[in-house]
Structure formats: C-alpha cells, structure tokens
C-alpha cells in the first residue's frame, strides 16, 4: 500500500521527472560512445555490439545503484557524493579538446565491444551517483528511472546522439539539474542535516539553487575557454583539396 500512497504525491512525480531527465542526460554520453563504436561495423555486428555493450551497462548500473543507495545513508558520503556530482555535471559541458593520448581504434566487433565496456564502467559510476541522489532513497523511483532510461540507451543510441548534437541545451539543463540535486544531497547529509533543519532551513532551497547556477556558469565558462584555445579551424576535407576538372 505504501507504493500506491507514494504515487499520489506531487513530490513523487517531480522526482520521477527529475530522475528521467538525469538518466537521459547521464546515459547520453554512454549512448554516444555506443553509437560511435558500432557505426563502422557491418549491420549484423552492429546489433551484436550494441546488445552486448548495453546489456553489460544495464547489469553494471543495477548493481552499482543498489550499492550507492545503501552507501548514501552513511554520514559524510552524501557530502562527498555532492562534490563528486558537481564535478561530473561540469564535465558534461566541456567539449572535445582534440588531444587524448593514445587510444587504438580498430573496426572489429571485439574492439567495439571493448570500447563500449570501458565506457560502461567509467560512465555507469557517474550515472549511478546522480540517479541515487535524485531518487532520495525511494526504491520505486530508482526502478522506474532505470526501467525508462535503459531502453533509451539500448535502442536509441544513435537517435539520442543526433538529438543532443542538434539541441545541446538538453545537456545544459540536465547538468544544471544535477547541480541542483547535488546541492540538495549536501544539505541532507546525516552530518549536517540536524544543524541545517534547526538553524538554516533556507539552505534546503539555497544549496540546490547555488549548485545548479554554479554548474551551468562554470561549465559554460570552461567550454568557452576550451573553444577560445582552439587556434585554427579544423578542416577535415583539406587532405583531398582540389577536384580536377574533367
């Protein structure tokens, strides 16, 4: 019955929307990796790469989420998680810098799956912290959030990538929301909760708002700086310059 009561509160629906948006934005990077890694494979293998890559992401995410929800009940961990989440949110907004050490990329099924698995490992951890923070301990929200976002990544990787390429503002909104959630998480850590409730209840709205503003401003600033550092225009057509006349 507790489940049905939960369904009737506005907080639940607000939370659900939050968790869906965060899921989509935080799964987006994973989707882009899957789409990029799979696209140079033949169509049959593409399906296999996406299937195995996404399945691994699902399993990893479920396990990590359950652990994260449990751990966020410990003192200090919410505060640490909040700082981590702020950083994750800012990182979402930074564009590619064109310099990334040595990553081999070969166009076979095995290499594609390997790339996707590494991405799953690195990116699931971020997702999980965000989702666990937004769920605020509600198992219903957590399960619904995963159930809605996972099919999106599995079946819509390419679509999701096009969508965000066209409207990058989705990512900005999502990053701001993550900042909001992280502020909320910091203010409800068991260590500070008692003090905040008694002396500074305004922190319950101020900390989230400050988190959101901080993420968007810092992210945009770093992105603009990265853009300004790009010295010359990239020309991917340069190598094949003039076309001879017939």
């Amino acid at each position: 019955m507790e489940f049905l009561n939960e369904l009737q509160t506005t907080a639940f629906w607000a939370g659900l929307w939050q968790i869906i948006l965060i899921n989509i934005v935080l799964s987006g990077d994973n989707a882009v990796v899957i789409a990029l890694a799979a696209r140079s494979l033949p169509p049959r293998q593409q399906k296999a790469a996406v299937f195995w890559g996404a399945s691994a992401a699902v399993v990893m995410r479920i396990i990590l989420t359950v652990i994260a929800v449990e751990m966020l009940k410990w003192p200090w961990l919410k505060l640490i998680g909040a700082v981590l989440l702020l950083w994750i949110a800012v990182k979402l907004l930074i564009p590619e810098d064109g310099d990334d050490g040595h990553i081999e990329s070969s166009d076979n099924l095995f290499a594609a799956i390997k790339t996707i698995l590494i991405a799953d490992l690195v990116m699931s951890l971020d997702n999980v912290i965000g989702v666990a923070a937004a769920a605020k301990g509600s198992l219903t929200l957590l399960i619904l959030g995963l159930a809605i976002s996972i099919p999106l990544v599995v079946f819509g990787a390419t679509m999701l990538m096009k969508l965000m390429e066209r409207w990058p503002v989705i990512i900005t909104i999502g990053a701001g929301l993550l900042g909001w959630v992280s502020g909320d998480m910091a203010a409800t850590d068991p260590v500070v909760k008692g003090w905040v409730d008694a002396n500074a209840a305004w922190l319950h709205w101020f900390a989230p708002a400050a988190g959101a503003v901080l993420v968007v401003i810092l992210g945009k600033w770093l992105a603009a700086r990265a853009e300004a550092e790009r010295k010359e225009v990239v020309d991917l057509g340069e190598a094949s310059e003039t076309k001879a006349p017939h």
Binding site: L36, P95, E96
Partner: peptide, 22 residues
C-alpha cells in the same frame, strides 16, 4: 556539430574516431 559530451566521449573512443565520424 560538435559531438555532445565531447571531453567525456573522446577519452573513451579517442579523437580519431570522432574526427572520422565528422
């Protein structure tokens, strides 16, 4: 268009792959 999540994605798939996509 710039690839979304550029810095995060390029650290996993590599710059060449992204350039090839573009």
């Amino acid at each position: 268009h710039l690839i979304p999540y550029g810095s995060r994605v390029s650290s996993v798939v590599g710059h060449d792959k992204i350039a090839q996509y573009h």
